[in-house]
Design a protein around this nucleic acid. Structure first.
Ligand code: MN
Ligand code: MN
Ligand code: ZN
Ligand code: ZN
Lengths: 136, 136
DNA sequence: CAAGCAGTTTAGAACAATTCTAAAACTGCA
DNA sequence: TGCAGTTTTAGAATTGTTCTAAACTGCTTG
């Protein structure tokens, strides 16, 4: 579980073309050295501060965007002005609890989507997002 | 097609608990007296101005939110800071062309989604959104 | 083990989308 | 026609995010 320092987060950053700076490593630990989860820039910023690794909000945004561009994170947009970053980059879908903003994963391998029309011509498929919206 | 004044937009507004003011009727015409489409607050604001029915931006936002709350419109969030209002409130899904921000409908009746897990307990299903993201 | 330089961080300004405020303009009804 | 409540509006405020420009740091090279 927690506590085990990942063997080489730094290497992972380097191979994404990112220098393993103090700030990036701290954020990477908060993101990748635990189970998959969903963060917002604000929540990650607060978490870093709480862990006594203060990082400026601008750096949190920069880092989330860089990690996302490097394929280390995926971005999920569920509501206007509510963008989550997801440490689970594999195929899966989401429950979104509208009443309290919670986001939960569910595996996509049990889900079959059939009969999707072909993409408009001149376009290629990028991703299929399924968001199951529920309320309490 | 266009040109035929809808018999009773005003009644439709009244039965949604909204007074048929000049502004609301103008926006309702732009929204409902043509084929289904997707607008942003800005695009609708511009359209109203072009049709010589200027409405303040605050009223456009108020009205879109009221129409949405009344079930006359549905809101579709495709990207951070990119919220569309959809005049098609029936079941259907969307193609989103990421490279240029276009949103297209596709019918949901040919699409089967099977194996969705049950909603987390204590919650009831609100809607299932499928967004097929494509790029040029 | 210095430079030195590109890459990185930061505070704060700037921006874009949206909501709020409070005052003026309407509407429906008494 | 007078009022009370509703709606609209300009502009201020808020929120989430990106930009700017200056300070700082990690890495390579001499
Ligand atoms: Mn972004
Ligand atoms: Mn809204
Ligand atoms: Zn997820
Ligand atoms: Zn649609």
């Amino acid at each position: 579980m927690s506590g085990a320092t990942s063997p080489d987060l730094a290497a992972r950053l380097r191979s994404a073309g990112l220098r393993p700076t103090r700030q990036r490593v701290a954020l990477a630990r908060a993101l990748f050295e635990r189970e998959h989860h969903h963060v917002t820039a604000e929540s990650l910023h607060a978490e870093a501060k709480a862990a006594r690794n203060p990082v400026s909000l601008a750096t949190v945004y920069n880092t989330l965007n860089q990690f996302r561009d490097a394929g280390l994170l995926r971005e999920v947009v569920v509501a206007p002005g509510r963008s989550y970053f997801d440490t689970n980059t594999g195929h899966h879908h989401h429950f979104y609890v509208e009443t309290d903003g919670e986001l939960h994963d569910f595996p996509s391998d049990k889900v079959t989507i059939e009969g999707l029309p072909v993409p408009p011509k001149g376009t290629k498929l990028s991703r299929v997002d399924v968001i199951v919206r529920v309320r309490r």
